[in-house]
Structure formats: C-alpha cells, structure tokens
C-alpha cells in the first residue's frame, strides 16, 4: 500500500482535494440530523423551533426523557415497549442463527435425496416480499390465538432464507476432515453439530444476528397488524402513536428517538465490522 502523499499532477491534486472536501461535507450533512436529534432531546419545545436554531442546549432538560418514558398520558408504557423490542429482536436473532445454522449445515455437509430441490425451495422464498404474505400470516396468527403475544410477534421471522444461504456458504468451506474425525471418535451427529460446527461459525453468526436484530428493531408493519394492546407494542408502533398525539412535545419526541436508537448505536459502534460487512454479504447473497 502506498503512503498517502500529496499528488503532483494537477488533475490528481484536484481529485485529492475534492475527494476530501466532498466526503467530509457529505458526512457532515448526513450527521446533522443525528446531532439535531441529540441536541433537541435536551431542549424545551419552544427552543427547538427558535430561529435561528441554537445547537447547544441551555441546560440538560432531563424532563424530556421522563416524558418520553412516561408518555403523554403518564402511563409509563415506553419502558415496557423498549423491553418488548429487545425481547422480540433478541429472540428473532437467536432463533434465526440457530435454525439457519442447522439447515445450512444439513445442506452443506450431507448428501440426501431431494437436497437440491429442498435448497431451491428455501432459496425461492427470498423472492416473496413480506407485504404480499402479511395478511395470510396475520390470519394464521389469529387462528393460533397469538395476537398480542411475543410468540405472535416472533413466529414469522424465526428463520430466514438468506440466513440459510449464508450459513451454507460459510460451512461449505468448513473442512470435512474435522467432521469425519469427530465421527471416528464416536461423537454423535448432534454432538458434532453442537460442539464442533457451532463454535466455528462465529463471524457468520454475528453477521446474521446483527442483521436479524436490526430488521426486527425496525419492524413496524407486523406489530401494527398483530398487536392491539398498548403494553405489547414494540418501539416503532409506540413512536407513531406518541408522535401523532396532539399534545406531543418536540423535545420529548427527540428523547423518544434517542432512547430507541441507543441500543442499535451501541451495537453499531462495538460491532461495526458485522454491520458494514453484513451489508456487503447480504448484497452478495442476492447476486
């Protein structure tokens, strides 16, 4: 790799300067609304719409966060809804990794009749948009009596075709010799999967877990369908209700947004490799 040195040719110098200016400008512009969310979350509503906007709040107005958690009606449901989101997104991440690993392992390391057909059948489901099947899925959940329950929120997302694809690709590169050696040592198939295969798929699991967690953290449509009771709502549904109320205070709205974003931003800063890598892997899977 060359060391960054200032180029001499005029066109290269222009690129050198322009690239830095444009990228820095774009990054700054993109970060402005995030900075706005943070600064406004500490301001009274009257300051948020003051002209010109003052970026540094006069003081830290924790009252916004209290109101965000208490809600406009003082029901304190937001904390419960955040917990619901954590439970649902966490459970979906865990089951997606577990089921995808098992199915991916079966497809990658075993030969059986109908394997290719089964694999194609799973891959084809990637083409089905959730919006097309949401009404039948809703009817299934109603028939099972699972409205307003965690299981109802989790059930349709417990496995993902992309996850199966990712795990299979990853395990195709896993040496057969290790599996065979374990077999010769008398390990049962189940134990081989649990103690030999599972521990070795860390990076793929992390990528998949992050992806699945984020998708459910973001999910609004499905909870709108299956949840009516306020205490079973997840964060996105709570936010819509909170923001639509006439008495909603802009400062409290931004506090709601900050609270909703903290967990994913903590994940992002600690696991950024899997976020950025995950996007690329996800795209590669669609290629």
């Amino acid at each position: 790799m060359r060391k960054p040195s200032i180029p001499k040719r005029p066109s290269e110098l222009a690129l050198f300067v322009l690239a830095r200016l444009v990228v820095a400008g774009a990054a700054a512009l993109i970060l402005v609304p995030l900075a706005f969310m943070l600064s406004a979350s500490f301001m009274p509503a009257s300051d948020i719409v003051s002209i010109p906007y003052r970026w540094i709040p006069d003081g830290f107005r924790w009252k916004n966060y209290l109101q965000a958690l208490a809600g406009n009606d003082g029901s304190w449901l937001y904390a419960r809804n955040v917990l619901n989101s954590l439970v649902v997104a966490g459970a979906v991440a865990a089951t997606t990794v577990a089921i995808s690993a098992s199915v991916g392992y079966g497809f990658a390391k075993f030969r059986f009749r109908g394997r290719n057909l089964a694999f194609m059948a799973v891959m084809a489901t990637m083409m089905i948009p959730f919006e097309t099947v949401m009404v039948p899925l809703y009817l299934v959940v109603v028939r099972l009596g699972l409205q307003d329950s965690y299981l109802g929120l989790i059930l349709p997302f417990m496995a993902s075709a992309f996850g199966v694809f990712l795990m299979r690709q990853y395990l195709l590169g896993f040496p057969d010799d290790i599996v065979d050696a374990a077999r010769i040592d008398g390990c049962s198939e189940w134990r081989i999967f649990r103690s030999v295969v599972l521990p070795s798929i860390g990076p793929a699991s992390a990528t998949l877990a992050v992806l699945a967690f984020r998708q459910q953290w973001d999910n609004l449509l499905w909870p709108l369908l299956v949840v009516q009771r306020e205490e079973m709502k997840t964060i996105p549904a709570y936010i819509v209700k909170f923001a639509a109320e006439k008495s909603a205070d802009e400062g409290a709205m931004m506090a709601v947004a900050v609270i909703a974003s903290l967990p994913v931003f903590i994940l992002f800063t600690t696991l950024s490799k899997y976020f950025l890598g995950g996007s690329a892997v996800f795209a590669a899977g669609k290629e």
Binding site: P33, M37, A40, I235, P236, A260, S261, V264
Partner: peptide, 22 residues
C-alpha cells in the same frame, strides 16, 4: 467516512422519519 455515511442506516425507519418530522 464509511461509518459516518452509514450511520443513519442504523436507525429504525420510524426514528428517521420522526427526526425529519421535527
């Protein structure tokens, strides 16, 4: 630079919409 540009994609869609609503 990549992380800065990517950071809004981390937010929930609803949170993104809420920020812009204000």
């Amino acid at each position: 630079a990549q992380m800065a540009l990517y950071s809004p994609a981390v937010l929930s869609s609803v949170v993104a919409a809420l920020i812009w609503l204000v």
